[in-house]
């Protein structure tokens, strides 16, 4: 059964993404695209003629997508949280290398920003999993989901995680890696057709990846987890509509200054 869910993961992420676009539109009092728009986009992209710059560049996008899929699969299977974070890191580096591998200024700019975003959120993810270990005694997701009371014991870590969610789902104030007008799509710019579709679907998987971390805070009561995810989803979109983009450097400073301090204070609290 679980394998069916893993196979369907990109579709599941697509639904989340489609839902988000509708939600954001409603917040702005727009009609917005239909709920299934990501899938209409998919069919359209598959139909387009694919143009590539060079073979490794195109293949790295495919690699990025599959590695992300594997890390999401590992989450579904309840594996070690640290392994999953590093697998995700690998997927990210593949994307960054793709961005650097072409002679395009925008692609390079985008890759630089992806790299800095990675520097910002990676430590927080690891600290959150350290928090889970200290409370539950294991890095295994399967074991973590058997425990409870995470939110009560690690509220500040949850706050730290909330700060980095917008980076991963590319939402204001931390949507620097995308920043439409500024860098013309960043890493994505040199892709077209089916290869762009892979990057597009990779984004769906990112949603599942980061919201899984939120879900873990519910522990054994999946209902609480689901409520947390829904609340975060709303909050992130609300903040997205209400804030402007910050500079890349400021983003790193904010995450290191605020989120990191919150995480450390929380861990010290657990250790006492």
């Amino acid at each position: 059964m679980i394998w069916v869910w893993i196979l369907l993961a990109p579709l599941l992420g697509g639904l989340v993404y489609g839902g988000e676009r509708v939600l954001r539109a409603r917040m702005q009092r727009r009609q917005g695209p239909p709920f299934l728009q990501p899938f209409y986009d998919m069919f359209k992209l598959m139909d387009k003629r694919s143009l590539i710059v060079h073979a490794p560049h195109a293949l790295l996008a495919v690699g990025h997508f599959f590695l992300l899929w594997v890390s999401v699969a590992a989450i579904f299977l309840g594996w070690n949280l640290l392994y999953i974070i590093f697998l995700h890191l690998f997927a990210q580096v593949v994307l960054i290398l793709a961005g650097y591998s072409v002679r395009s200024v925008y692609s390079h700019l985008g890759a630089n920003r992806e790299l800095l975003a990675l520097v910002a959120y990676e430590p927080i993810l690891i600290l959150v999993s350290v928090g889970f270990y200290l409370v539950s005694g294991s890095f295994e997701i399967g074991r973590i989901l058997e425990g409870e009371g995470y939110l009560a014991q690690m509220p500040l870590l949850f706050a730290a995680l909330l700060i980095i969610v917008p980076i991963k789902v590319k939402k204001s104030p931390f949507d620097v890696t995308e920043a439409h007008q500024e860098i013309v799509g960043g890493v994505e710019i040199e892709y077209s057709g089916v290869f762009y579709e892979f990057l597009y679907m990779a984004r769906f998987l990112e949603y599942l990846f980061i919201y899984s971390f939120i879900f873990l805070f519910g522990g054994i009561s999946y209902g609480v987890g689901a409520v947390l995810v829904a609340a975060t989803f709303l909050l992130v979109n609300l903040v997205d509509n209400a804030t402007a983009r910050v500079r890349t450097g400021d983003m790193v400073k904010i995450v290191y200054g605020v989120a990191m301090s919150l995480a450390v204070i929380n861990i010290v609290g657990i250790l006492r």
Partner: peptide
């Protein structure tokens, strides 16, 4: 904390250098 931050800074460092080396023109 040192281990976590240091590792990620090294990733930044190495791939920054890689960015200079790479950038292949079109096929």
């Amino acid at each position: 904390l040192g281990m976590i931050v240091g590792s990620v800074l090294l990733v930044l460092l190495y791939f920054k250098v890689a960015s200079a080396l790479l950038s292949h023109p079109s096929d």
